[in-house]
């Protein structure tokens, strides 16, 4: 894509986002905001699982850390909402780095183990430090005051989707860069990656911390959208749902998290009529069925179908295989 078309595309996407602010009702805007912030969390997790080949079962915990950071800063210190976002990101990044250092150097599932432990332990920790976290009851957080004539929902929607767009562009740059290629080599063959001069342990720790940071940012945005945090919203199942989101969207694919976020946001709306536990069952089945039958996810399938279609329309011109290094699926 030439520089001009990419600038045009970016402007067009931003324009659509802004137009939506004024044409879509508040309820749907809050759902779209949820899509945006979930996409941020999934883009973080996808960096770790899809590109670097490491599993985290505890990203719900980083989401919680971000959410509580914003909740506490806003209610205790009266800090402006937007200012708390970078702090939430940095704090989750730091916790990720501290946990990642012992976990990622070791055998494959050590990180899964440590993050699982974190996900199980965190709700109890949040309840324990009642003075800070409001304990079992959680914290009610005043929603941000919108600038100008916007409603609060319009404002939080804009913040969420614009940030999601920025993160999308950054992540897409990163995975096609030298470092993105290094991540894939670490996933594909650790020994060979090291022999090529890739500092395997450092790449893993930084990617883990980065993905934790992005998920923390998503959690902070969730507080702006819902105005409420409570320990039981951040249990183990949240972490597994996030995994289901990236598996459905497509591991190691830039568009995967977007599809996954739409799925995770709208699924409960349609299934909780059946049962409160239905989304969990669906997500569990999604993980199993996709990994067995469609490991490249929805976006992978779409790419494949699109390629076939183009080949049929223009059989002469050879369709170039996508050489964007990062967009290759996890091999299964």
């Amino acid at each position: 894509m030439s520089a001009l078309t990419s600038t045009l595309t970016r402007t067009a996407v931003l324009a659509v986002m802004i137009v939506c602010t004024f044409t879509v009702n508040d309820y749907d805007l809050s759902l779209l905001a949820q899509v945006g912030l979930t996409a941020i969390a999934l883009m973080g997790l996808n960096l770790l699982v899809g590109y670097c080949g490491q599993l985290s079962l505890g990203h719900g915990a980083f989401y919680a850390i971000g959410a509580y950071t914003t909740a506490i800063l806003v209610t205790r210190t009266g800090m402006p909402h937007l200012l708390t976002l970078p702090i939430a990101l940095v704090l989750s990044f730091a916790v990720g780095a501290v946990l990642g250092i012992p976990a990622v150097r070791l055998r494959g599932f050590s990180l899964a183990l440590v993050t699982l432990a974190l996900a199980i332990a965190l709700p109890q920790l949040l309840k324990h430090f009642e003075g800070l976290t409001g304990g079992q009851l959680g914290v009610n957080v005043p929603r941000p005051a919108p600038p100008g004539a916007l409603t609060t929902d319009q404002w939080t929607y804009l913040v969420a989707v614009v940030l999601a767009f920025a993160v999308f562009l950054g992540v897409r740059n990163l995975v096609t860069s030298r470092i993105g290629l290094a991540m894939v080599t670490v996933r594909d063959n650790e020994a060979a990656a090291g022999a090529m001069g890739v500092p395997v342990a450092r790449v893993r720790v930084v990617v883990f911390a980065l993905s934790a940071g992005l998920t923390g940012l998503a959690g902070a945005l969730a507080t702006l959208v819902t105005g409420y945090v409570s320990p039981d919203n951040f249990n183990m199942l949240l972490s597994v749902n996030l995994v289901a989101g990236i598996v459905l969207g497509g591991l190691g694919r830039v568009w995967g998290p977007i599809v996954g976020a739409v799925f995770l946001t709208y699924l409960p709306l349609y299934t909780t009529d059946i049962s409160q536990t239905a989304p969990g069952i669906v997500n569990g089945l999604v993980i199993i069925v996709f990994l067995l039958l469609l490991p490249e996810g929805v976006t992978g399938l779409a790419t494949r179908l699109g390629r076939r279609l183009r080949a049929r329309i223009a059989p002469r011109s050879t369709v170039r295989t996508e050489s964007g290094t990062g967009s290759e699926p996890v091999r299964t």
Binding site: A182, V184, T185, D188, A193, M196, S323, R331
Partner: peptide, 15 residues
Amino acid sequence: ALFPSLTVLDNVIAG
């Protein structure tokens, strides 16, 4: 010990 999900050229670029 190649990187199986990459193309030939990307393997060399990774090198």
